[in-house]
Design a protein around this nucleic acid. Structure first.
Lengths: 144, 144
DNA sequence: AACTTTACTTGCAATATGCAAGTATTAATT
DNA sequence: AATTAATACTTGCATATTGCAAGTAAAGTT
């Protein structure tokens, strides 16, 4: 079973870290948001290679925190589909700023130059546009 | 001794989590950036109460990652001063977006309303202004 | 009926965390 | 000069989390 979240303080940074302050949770959000992945198998196959027990644990925690929702595929009933919620869609600006930061400081970054340039040049419009797409159920396909 | 960082992939999100993907590192950055703290003792006294061995470990990791720098106090030579680097100052937009997100979703958030409103209304200007202050060695004093 | 696909669960060793107490260095006090 | 205080860590040990490899369960396919 998955551990409980312990609320450490009312600080907004602390609150956020209580939820996604680990090495894996945001990668799941990334996979759905930027890579169009939505199944357990696809998450498990990501290049960071998370162990399946950890994956199951994080999916349960993220669901409990209201960041993802589970649904069963209508056609293939053995398949579970994970999707983002409003709460996690609202993390888009956080992820965009993280991408910008990493692109600046990681010389081997896989963040596409064109995308990073768009962040720098008109972030507001970019986020608005991406958010619209995400709400419509698309995801932001990226090489990274 | 502090563990090594293992690079899991070239993804910018993964790169960032490799550095600060845990429950404590960003709280140290927060303490310096938003609360004007700069000593080991002050970090240890934060309300989230991090264990001192973990604190020492994280300070070493953050220093190794280039996010903080250590210096000895000229006057009290027993005192070590931790400060932010350009690399961690550039995390300001990330932290600002995290604060905005948490303020939206945590009903008991301690994030000051006025501050969150400023984020919403003119984030760019706010960040610019805060960044200028931070570069000048001030910190952003907040109740949270 | 056997095989495959998909989503997990389990057992166990290795690692990290949390807690309480201890050490080391310099500064201040008596 | 000796004692106490302040500050930054370190250490030992119990508990919790992670990582790895293998196993189970339910539905779908052949």
């Amino acid at each position: 079973m998955s551990r409980m979240i312990r609320r450490r303080s009312d600080c907004p940074i602390s609150f956020s870290l209580d939820i996604f302050g680990d090495k894996w949770s945001l990668l799941i959000i990334r996979d759905i948001m930027f890579k169009g992945k939505y199944t357990y198998g696809e998450f498990a196959a990501s290049e960071e290679k998370m162990a399946t027990n950890i994956l199951a644990d994080r999916l349960a925690l993220l669901e409990a925190a209201g960041l993802i929702s589970r649904s069963r595929d209508k056609k293939k009933k053995t398949r579970i589909l994970y999707s983002l919620t409003k709460k996690s869609l609202d993390l888009l600006p956080v992820l965009i700023e993280i991408i910008r930061w990493a692109a600046k400081y990681d010389k081997h970054t896989a963040a596409p130059k064109e995308f990073v340039n768009r962040i720098r040049k008109d972030k507001e419009k970019l986020i608005e546009e991406l958010a619209r797409g995400l709400r419509a159920g698309q995801s932001i396909y990226q090489d990274s």
